[in-house]
Nucleic acid binder design. Structure first.
Lengths: 227, 227
DNA sequence: CCTTGGACCTGAACATGTTCAACTTTGAAT
DNA sequence: ATTCAAAGTTGAACATGTTCAGGTCCAAGG
């Protein structure tokens, strides 16, 4: 799918991606034309397509880039904290901070990634490696905490937290408050609520519901993985 | 924004919209070109733009159309049922049923409506009348039930259920299971869970969290309404 | 009947994402 | 050194959403 088997090719690929990254940041996604990317990279307009199937695939690369930053940012928190709320809050805050420089571009990126018709849909095949990687991060959040969880939660919670992260990022994208304080407020409030819900979900009035819901989540996840 | 001040203009507007509706249904959104719409409507390619600012604004009209169908479909259920779970499930099932004929188109529509950069974003100004209308439907779901709710829930629950509807529709859109059974399964499970959560949220371990969360939801909603 | 102003309509032109047939470069096998 | 196939590169061409300067239609006022 992606070329770049020669050193020269790899070089060109990188050059094109960096040009795209710069321009996305300078002007936003829509305002960046493929011709402009090509020009800045010093190649012909058609060259991008040898390395990236479409303009939006450049976005996937961008997302990979951001995810790597996110993982790096999380490391200290995950090494230090054992409390589940603190770990979760740390990781979610980190993703918001990491994305902050790209706030203006984020809209276009999200719309590409949310579009069910797009090849890059978050639930789709192209995004799978990255998705698994993010879910693994949340497995680490859960696994490294001192909270003991029932096995069905251990299995499915990371996936649900990944979903939660998507929700937070969507809110953050639309957030126009000064210093994006609204988002931080929402993060603090919801992280707390989630952990509280996890405990309550073990009590009689909810335990049955929890089991049923997680079984459903599991079977859906398996279906996606299979198809 | 929308012309159509003459009878003749109104006629043309309708013709164009119906042509678009047909073509969207036949070929999907992306595959429908503005030229094809114009051709089927028997007008020039530029004519659409006299009535609809863009191709995606045709989608807003489409969404209005679907919402009207949805409201009509809900009426019997809301007249009959008093149980909150039954009312909620009825309305959510209705929206899924109403949208079913447009399943193939739904993806493009959703991506337009979810795009924060789009003028048509669900949280944005252009979509406000429709949004309020949907929220009002959920106020009816809650208000007409025999369940007594704390005042903060009465105020904010409709908005949250609107959000829930969006989530269900997103799932439905990606659902490729036979007869869309997966979606119905998810709907039944989550409607039940929501109502259960509402009761549990009144008990000591969660009451405080509920109040804080709803206060946050409220202040955010006010901010959106103001800006 | 003529004039006038605004709504309505047209279709050529533009910008942009994408394709592709043809061309060049590269590096290893002969 | 020569060959050759694969990788890399090019830029003209295409389809499509959108714009806009110019034209047509029609009802009301003179």
């Amino acid at each position: 799918m992606a070329a770049g088997r020669t050193q020269r090719g790899e070089q060109t690929r990188t050059t094109i991606f960096r040009a795209a990254l710069d321009l996305f940041r300078e002007r936003g996604y829509e305002a960046t034309t493929m011709r402009a990317i090509a020009e800045r990279a010093g190649v012909a307009p058609g060259s991008s397509y040898h390395y990236f199937p479409s303009k939006s695939h450049l976005v996937l690369e961008f997302y990979r880039h951001v995810h790597a930053l996110h993982v790096a940012t999380c490391a200290p928190v995950l090494a230090r904290e054992r409390d589940l709320t603190a770990r979760l809050r740390g990781v979610i805050r980190a993703v918001v901070m990491t994305c902050e420089p790209f706030h203006d571009v984020a809209g276009s990126i999200f719309s590409t990634v949310a579009d069910p018709g797009s090849a890059l849909n978050v639930f789709g095949a192209d995004a799978k490696p990255l998705r698994e990687s993010v879910i693994a991060l949340y497995a680490e959040v859960v696994g490294g905490s001192d909270t003991r969880l029932p096995s069905d939660l251990t299995a499915e919670l990371p996936r649900l937290l990944w979903l939660y992260q998507m929700g937070v990022l969507y809110f953050w994208m639309l957030d126009t408050s000064a210093g994006r304080l609204r988002t931080l407020e929402v993060v603090d409030e919801t992280c707390d609520l989630i952990v509280r819900l996890i405990s309550v979900a073990n009590l009689p009035p909810l335990r049955r519901s929890r089991r049923r819901l997680l079984a459903l989540v599991r079977s859906i996840a398996e279906e996606i993985a299979a198809g």
